[in-house]
């Protein structure tokens, strides 16, 4: 018996050793600044020194958050899901717009049930008048509206009390938001009832014993 346990432990350890010593193979960041004939590739921990010209370029949040100054004051277009809420500051409104897999590819985790890492996104400042076009923001029960904004990337927005953000002049709703189907699991309901029942029984037994 003991030998079997030791043998099993040895096999498990050997099998686990590869995992223990392995470095996670992170996918390198994709090309993040794209336009015809011009493609910049961002490597982790490094910012390219060459910036594109003055025409709007399609960007992802990765280049904007890792290399904020690369595209400072440059026109950009950016697409993503508005999440959590709209911050209204009078003339302008602020949005957090995510472009990670939960926003654009797989959809929110509560619906897709597949994990794909953390959220990725940037702040966007839009004219308050355009905020009304965004019907839904993403949260646990909603997939927020997918919007595409065109504007200039600013490293700081001190005049508006804001941080790094895209100052959008144009906001297009690509896909309206929608409500997510709530996850259901009868097994979970029964497990909760059984666990609560056992907890109450033990609490009663402990109380009776104390008396």
């Amino acid at each position: 018996m003991v030998a079997a346990v030791v043998a099993a432990g040895a096999v498990a350890s050997a099998a686990g050793l590869d995992q223990l010593l392995a470095t996670t193979q992170r996918e390198p960041d994709q090309a993040v600044v794209e336009r015809p004939g011009d493609r910049l590739t961002l490597t982790e921990g490094d910012c390219p020194t060459r910036a594109p010209g003055d025409e709007p370029v399609a960007v992802t949040s990765a280049v904007l958050t890792q290399c904020p100054r690369l595209l400072a004051d440059r026109p950009v277009t950016y697409r993503g899901e508005a999440v959590r809420g709209i911050i209204d500051q009078g003339r302008h409104a602020w949005l957090q717009v995510n472009d990670g897999p939960y926003a654009l590819d797989r959809g929110p985790l509560p619906a897709s049930r597949t994990t794909a890492g953390t959220n990725a996104g940037v702040a966007v400042r839009i004219p308050s008048a355009r905020a009304g076009s965004i019907d839904t923001v993403g949260d646990a029960r909603h997939h927020g509206a997918i919007i595409e904004v065109t504007g200039r990337w600013q490293v700081s927005n001190a005049g508006d009390a804001g941080g790094a953000a895209i100052r959008a002049e144009r906001v297009d709703v690509i896909q309206p938001g929608h409500r997510l189907d709530p996850p259901r699991s009868p097994l979970r309901t029964w497990a909760a009832v059984a666990a609560a029942g056992l907890a109450l029984t033990l609490t009663g037994a402990a109380w009776w014993r104390r008396r």
């Binding site: 999440v83 959590r84 957090q96 995510n98 939960y102 929110p108 985790l109 509560p110 994990t115 794909a116 890492g117 953390t118 959220n119 996104g121 993403g138 949260d139 646990a140 029960r141």
Partner: peptide, 10 residues
């Protein structure tokens, strides 16, 4: 190390 924090429940 949470996944998709922006879609977590209250």
């Amino acid at each position: 190390v949470i996944n998709d924090l922006d879609h977590t429940s209250d």
